[in-house]
Simulated scan of single mutants.
Amino acid sequence: MNDAWIGDVAASAWLVPILFALVVGDAFLVVLPSEAAVVALAALSTSTGSPSLVAIIPVAAAGAVVGDGLCYLIGRRIGLDRWHWQRTGRIGTAITRVRSAVHRRTAVLVFTARYVPFARIAVNLAAGAGRVPLRRYFPLSIAAGIAWAVFNVSIGAVVGELLGDSPLVAIAISVPTAIVLGLAVDRVLASLDARRASRLAGLADSAEAPPGPVTPP
């Protein structure tokens, strides 16, 4: 297959703005392939030289921060119960799980939720509705957005470097690789969260257990 045309696509001035829009939109619509877009452009960059990685990382991170910040503001203004989708389905389940923990585990939730689509929406809405102080939330959101952008760009860049002569093949391999790694991260985080919940439940049961009989001296 002749890949010469891919260089013209890679050099398009529209790619980076479209990436920003995708990442912002993905904060609300999990069907938008923002991770795949970041990975694909990183693979394209290292394969063809365009678009620049220097542009992809900050733009992806900025889109993540803006999207999550908008979710935070919606939660702060609207709350968690006004719309039907907030109370049902996977988003409703995720909101129920995080709304009571968002103050105690703000940093952990903001960082890990970036890799779990429905949790991302839930955490940011719950942070806003729970009035997590912006001076606490915003720096965490920035750090999480940068970490997420670097993670996905790194995957695309590594594959693109290995398959520099075949940019389309690099994209075709890097995107499924990122999806598999994302699912692995999701499973690990879910396992750790389940263990933590089980441990806390055990501690609560121990605290509520009545004391044993006192043996007279």
Rank of each mutant, 00 (worst) to 15 (best):
L109A: 05
R131G: 04
L200H: 12
V24N: 02
T215P: 10
A122R: 06
V65E: 03
P133A: 00
T48N: 05
P117W: 08
I78V: 15
R77C: 03
G63C: 01
Y137C: 01
V65P: 02
W83C: 01
R87A: 08
G212T: 06
I6S: 12
A13H: 02
G75T: 03
P210D: 02
R82Q: 12
Y137E: 00
T46I: 05
V158T: 13
G182R: 12
L44F: 01
R187Y: 14
R87P: 02
L53W: 00
R77H: 11
A178H: 08
G156P: 12
D186I: 14
A157W: 10
A194D: 13
F151Q: 09
W85S: 13
R135G: 08
V38M: 08
R82N: 05
P167H: 04
A119Q: 11
V102Q: 01
G156Q: 09
G182W: 14
V66K: 00
D8W: 08
S141A: 15
L203S: 11
S12V: 00
I56G: 00
A172C: 11
N152H: 15
V39H: 01
V66E: 01
P58Q: 03
L189I: 15
A43D: 05
L32I: 15
R187A: 15
P217L: 11
I18C: 04
R104L: 09
S206T: 14
V169R: 10
D26F: 09
S52D: 04
L73P: 07
V158H: 06
P51A: 06
V98W: 05
A64F: 04
A147P: 03
S45R: 00
I6W: 10
L181R: 09
L22V: 02
S47I: 02
V102C: 03
V185H: 12
R104C: 02
G79R: 02
I155T: 07
F118Y: 11
G182K: 11
L140H: 03
L181A: 12
A178D: 07
V123P: 02
R199F: 11
A37E: 04
E35G: 14
A21G: 07
M1A: 15
P133T: 00
S34T: 06
I74E: 04
V175G: 07
E208P: 04
A113T: 10
A11N: 05
V158S: 11
L70R: 01
G160A: 10
L80P: 07
R82P: 08
L189K: 07
R77Q: 09
P217D: 13
T88G: 07
V180I: 15
G145E: 05
L162Q: 11
A107W: 14
S154V: 13
I179F: 15
T177M: 15
V123L: 04
R199A: 14
A127I: 05
I18L: 14
F138E: 02
R99Y: 10
